[in-house]
């Protein structure tokens, strides 16, 4: 795929804004519409813009997959951490006695982990499609 100079320039301008919007969606996931899955998909879209800028760049698939597995383990651990701290599984690991601002840490942590996992997964799918075939 040979890109025109127009597409490359517009992609370079758009790239930081896409990432900024993605991180806004993730970090405000518990206050405004959005969250881990949506923000991760937007991050993946921003990452795909880099293929428009330089179509020769490749990412190592093995590294992507390994990180995705580690992130999935981290998500599982974060979800079941409340079994130790509160005695009931799969809920917030900070007890309701804390103020709301501190209990937000759980949502922030889980949103960021989920979004990174979704972004890595979608990038790996597109990367597989890019590497398939000789053309």
């Amino acid at each position: 795929m040979k890109q025109s100079i127009l597409v490359i320039t517009i992609s370079r301008i758009m790239l930081p804004f896409v990432f900024l919007y993605g991180f806004y969606i993730i970090l405000h996931g518990d206050l405004s519409p959005g969250g881990g899955f949506q923000g991760g998909a937007i991050l993946a879209t921003g990452f795909l813009l880099t293929y428009f800028i330089d179509d020769e760049r490749r990412v190592d698939l093995n590294r992507l997959m390994r990180r995705e597995k580690l992130l999935f383990l981290a998500i599982l651990l974060t979800g079941s951490l409340s079994l130790i701290t509160r005695g009931e599984p799969f809920t917030n690991f900070l007890s309701p006695d804390f103020p709301v601002e501190i209990r937000r840490i759980f949502f922030l942590l889980l949103n960021v982990l989920l979004s990174l996992k979704v972004a890595l997964g979608l990038t790996a799918i597109v990367e597989t499609f890019l590497e398939e075939g000789q053309g």
């Binding site: 969250g35 949506q38 998909a41």
Partner: peptide, 8 residues
């Protein structure tokens, strides 16, 4: 929420 995921 659904709309954001659908667009992306």
């Amino acid at each position: 929420d659904v709309s954001l995921a659908e667009v992306a």
